[in-house]
Design a protein around this nucleic acid. Sequence first.
RNA 1: GACCCUUUCAUCUAGUGGCCAAGGAUGUUGCAUUUUCAAUGCAUUCACAGAGGUUCAAAUCCUCUAAGGGUCGCCA
Length: 459
Amino acid sequence: MIVTRFAPSPTGYLHIGGLRTALFSWLWARKNGGKFLLRIEDTDMARNSEEALKAIIKAFSWVGMSYDEEVYYQSKRFDIYQKYIDQLLSEGKAYKCYMSKEELDALREEQMAKKERPRYDGRYRDFNGTPPAGIEPAVRIKAPLDGIITFIDGVKGEINISASEVDDFIIARSDGTPTYNFVVAIDDALMGITDVIRGDDHLYNTPKQIVVYDALGFKIPRFAHVAMINNEQGKKLSKRDGAIDVMEYKQNGFLSEALLNFLVRLGWSHGDQEIFSIEEMIEFFDPKDINKSSSSYNLDKLYWLNSHYIKQKSDEELSSLLVGFGVNIVNHPKKSIILNATKERAKTLKELSSQIKLILETPSNYDEKSFAKAFKDENTKGLLKAFGDNLKVANPKSKEDYHKALEDFVAQNSIGFGKIAQPLRLALLGELSGAGLDEIMEILGLDECLIRIDNIIKN
RNA sequence: GACCCUUUCAUCUAGUGGCCAAGGAUGUUGCAUUUUCAAUGCAUUCACAGAGGUUCAAAUCCUCUAAGGGUCGCCA
């Protein structure tokens, strides 16, 4: 059984980098009929934010990634960790360190000055004298002193880190609370995680966690470290960058399936295929096909994907999605004509909603430049009026009727289509570009068309 | 500074020694279509980081160089 997990710390919003590794983990579990767990890494109480936690769960539900079992909170599992700290202490695999913060800083500075990699020097590793007074000790684990820590990374291949690079790191702070690398290893082992898929900023935590696995006699899972996503400037995505908060994509009118499709192709591929339904992602995903190199994201492709998925959506789905963008056509009798007229020219739901609003709302004013352009010919108003009169007589019903009315009018007056089309569009939409005139008029109906034509003539 | 990772078009990528004078997609530009804007179709543009090896043969293997990234907390 494959068990994967996503283990964010609730210190910021979920950004697309996190969403992508979560997606990879989720796909791998679903593909194998395994489990995908959600675990909140909140051991550092001072830095937790309730809001951030809610945002993460909200984002998960938006994209439709379901997790198994309940959400695990590390802050509720301290007694478990304590047990293992005591165990390691009594087995002599961990020890108390009485070094003060100041001493530690001094040591680090000294090592930096000598151009060495800063690391704990092990001074309390075999200490059995009288501890200094007034200092609450932290607990450190005994890391191997020599040799090489090796693991096979599912993405990068064999990774070798010499043991001298891994110091006796702290597993419990002086206030008794356990630290990240310790609890991650314990939880992953206890929860039976078989595949740890995470960002490669954790690559260096892996040897530390292996030290914990070994000390506790746990089985080491498979690791797959996914390279980072960079921003368009090729720099690391920052959590503070509001534009990349997952929920902002929703607010900006992106469909979750477009975002997921976009993310799955960032660092992963399946031949030349670009469009993946969720089912196909699950079917084809394999961590072995994840790229080693980091990638930068490119909004153009997301827009392309998004318009693709907008066109795929049913009228029912689209119209209910649009409610969130201030357009309610759920029960509109001409819903499907409206959507057909507009969805081809919208890259986002936001754009779609404003296209629809343009049609549904009677224009109250006209852009000066556009007006001047469309009405630069003095006869234009007269032409529009004549067209309105013709319409009244023709009494068109369908978009074919309207089309015929237009054609007839152009033929009768021997003018180019553009002569009437541009002013008419401005009259109907208040804009010079947008949906086809036939469709717009069918949606509006004869009366509203005449009102709008009349309005612009009076302008 | 030390250690680790990475390097194919502007961007995402295919590619595991011959099928590659490098394929797909987005973007660009052009043409067609059209009442506008789109959409669509067709075409166009653009890359193996560099230098040395190994080999009959290298984008693919090896070495070095360069550039980018990551990590060095009683943060996660």
